[in-house]
């Protein structure tokens, strides 16, 4: 459904150039929920803008629904829904007016496609006369999603829909995406929250304009390929410093309640002995997508 081949894009900055996208290639299958996982500055927004025909790449080819993003941009614009990272609705129109506006642009009506948006829109309906600018963050996000869906697109591009959103609303939003996928819509979604990778069929981990790795969440976790330990002590700062200075340790970093530790060789007993901390608690654990990301970043 989406094919990206060797796409590069640079921007001028002062006297120099910044490479936003550096030879990126991947494919998204029809009906897939595909996640671009990476921090700010990874190039996610540039990629979305290229795929939605709003920005030209310097190099490479991309197609969406078999249409070329440069030559057949008209076809693509009819078939995709796009929710940009920044709130892009008309703040001085009401909820209802925004929705009608987007439906009209695509030569359709809200009534005709009500089924498509119903599940999300029912939560907004009590506020339909309210100006979009007066909505709370979570409500704005739901309205933006309705506006991106109102013309029944085949592909949905969602640029960081959950950034700055609390953990409860994030879970609700991913439930909505799961239902859209069940309706057969292909979804390309980006997020800086690593744990959200688990909710995607496949993901690409992106950093500094490059793809670090692509695969199903399980494949990425299996590809981690190193034993990982979780360690805890009364003084977590002292433990971290001791781990970082220890010759047996390849990498150590805070991870929630524990520090994650990767050893150069599997000599846990030697590590425990050399640390000599009586209150040390250490056990093997399984890696998380964030561990994969950290490991790929340091390569």
């Amino acid at each position: 459904m989406i094919s990206v081949q060797h796409i590069s894009k640079s921007y001028r900055q002062g006297k120099g150039q910044v490479k936003a996208l550096d030879n990126i290639s991947f494919e998204v299958l029809k009906g897939e929920l595909f996640g671009l996982i990476g921090p700010d500055g990874a190039g996610k927004t540039s990629l979305f803008r290229i795929l939605t025909t709003l920005l030209l790449a310097d190099q490479g080819i991309a197609t969406v629904d078999d249409a070329d993003v440069v030559k057949e941009y008209r076809h693509i614009r009819q078939r995709v829904g796009y929710m940009p990272g920044r709130f892009s609705l008309y703040q001085d129109l009401s909820v209802e007016e925004n929705l009608q506006f987007f439906a009209t642009i695509f030569n359709t009506t809200v009534a005709e496609n009500y089924e498509q948006i119903k599940e999300i829109y029912v939560q907004l309906e009590p506020f339909k006369k309210r100006l979009a600018g007066k909505l709370s963050g979570g409500m704005k996000q739901k309205l933006a999603l309705c506006c991106a869906l109102v013309h029944r697109p085949d592909v949905l591009f969602l640029d960081e829909p959950t950034t700055g959103v609390d953990a409860v609303s994030r879970i609700e939003f991913w439930d909505i995406l799961k239902r859209l996928k069940a309706d057969g819509i292909t979804v390309l979604v980006s997020t800086p929250y690593m744990e959200e990778a688990a909710k995607c069929d496949r993901v690409a981990l992106v950093q500094g304009g490059k793809i670090l790795s692509t695969g199903t969440p399980d494949e990425l976790l299996k590809g981690f390929g190193q034993k990982i330990y979780a360690a805890k002590a009364a003084s977590m700062l002292a433990l971290l410093e001791a781990l970082k200075q220890n010759a047996l340790v390849k990498d150590a970093y805070p991870f929630g309640e524990y520090h994650h530790v990767i050893l150069k060789e599997d000599r846990l007993d030697d590590l425990v002995h050399s640390l000599g901390m009586p209150d040390l608690e250490i056990m093997e654990t399984s890696p998380d997508i964030e561990d994969c990301f950290i490991s790929l970043m340091s390569h």
């Binding site: 990476g38 921090p39 700010d40 990874a42 950034t163 700055g164 800086p192 690593m194 950093q207 977590m236 700062l237 971290l240 970093y253 805070p254 964030e290 990301f293 950290i294 970043m297 340091s298």
Partner: peptide
């Protein structure tokens, strides 16, 4: 929200700065 959108390695470096300040 000092670390929103920051990569996982830098996010951790940031927290080490917090720990040191608290220390």
């Amino acid at each position: 929200e000092p670390t929103g959108g920051v990569d996982p390695v830098t996010r951790r470096e940031f927290w080490q700065m917090i720990y040191k300040a608290a220390d």
